[in-house]
């Protein structure tokens, strides 16, 4: 029997980008996962935690644990929210007997595909120049790929999976993994710097010839897409799960 996957869809994806949730579900089911979407889920609490409002996070962390603890695996199409659950719940759930197990079984979407599900190659075609934005939390918290600061062998499973698709050409950036400037409430509190960061990332992709800008996190993409659409740039934004789903 296939392991039962609890699909963790971050609140903003649920409300603003349902297609990303749908694409993630389709891919997981395509590869034979038994997926359930527990409907009582809301938000992991990251916006409050990152603003310092930890009082508001505790109850949400506990809710999250109760909702997801019975699944064999928890999978989420957002590195940032996964990093919240895996790296920042300790102060709320550190003593909880089920938290350690939850940490171990929570996965970012691509991480789950390439890890436990063992997917190394995707069929189908996507004949586009794709720009891969390395979202910071996936990169430097979850270590889903090598970051440019650290000395060691380069790696990155999501990138490999993307490259395995026929027609995909990943563009080469001047700054391979600089932050886009979203940063949650930072995007609003430090609006000027945030937007300049976003503009610079978009410009880098534009120069590199990116047609489709993708990432493991929709939040970074929401921010950059906001700039792309305001400035009417010829770049389309897609979550990596959407690209995978298009190849099915």
């Amino acid at each position: 029997m296939a392991p039962q996957v609890g699909l963790f869809i971050p609140c903003y994806i649920d409300q603003l980008y349902p297609q990303v949730g749908i694409a993630s579900l389709k891919i997981l089911e395509h590869f034979g996962a038994d997926v359930e979407y527990p409907e009582s889920q809301t938000c992991c609490g990251q916006p409050m935690a990152n603003t310092g409002c930890t009082n508001e996070v505790g109850p949400l962390a506990l809710r999250f644990l109760e909702i997801f603890k019975s699944y064999d695996a928890v999978v989420c199409p957002s590195g940032s929210c996964v990093s919240m659950v895996k790296h920042h719940y300790d102060e709320y759930l550190g003593d909880h007997p089920d938290y350690k197990r939850l940490k171990e079984k929570t996965f970012e979407f691509c991480e789950y595909l390439t890890g436990p599900m063992g997917i190394k190659k995707l069929d189908g075609q996507f004949p586009h120049k794709v720009g891969l934005h390395q979202s910071c939390h996936g990169l430097r918290e979850l270590r889903l790929a090598s970051s440019s600061e650290v000395v060691g062998e380069p790696f990155g499973n999501a990138r490999e999976l993307l490259e395995s698709i026929e027609g995909v050409e990943i563009t080469t950036l001047q700054r391979p993994d600089e932050c886009c400037g979203f940063g949650g409430t930072f995007a609003v509190a430090e609006e000027a710097v945030s937007c300049m960061m976003g503009e610079d990332r978009v410009y880098d992709h534009e120069q590199a010839g990116t047609e489709v800008l993708t990432a493991l996190d929709m939040s970074c993409l929401m921010h950059m897409d906001g700039i792309i659409r305001r400035q009417k740039k010829p770049i389309r934004v897609m979550h990596i799960a959407e690209i995978f789903a298009e190849c099915l």
Partner: peptide, 14 residues
């Protein structure tokens, strides 16, 4: 100020 808001979809994921 410098960004478009995301388009609101017709229905949520749930």
């Amino acid at each position: 100020k410098q960004r478009e808001l995301p388009d609101i979809p017709k229905q949520s994921f749930r």
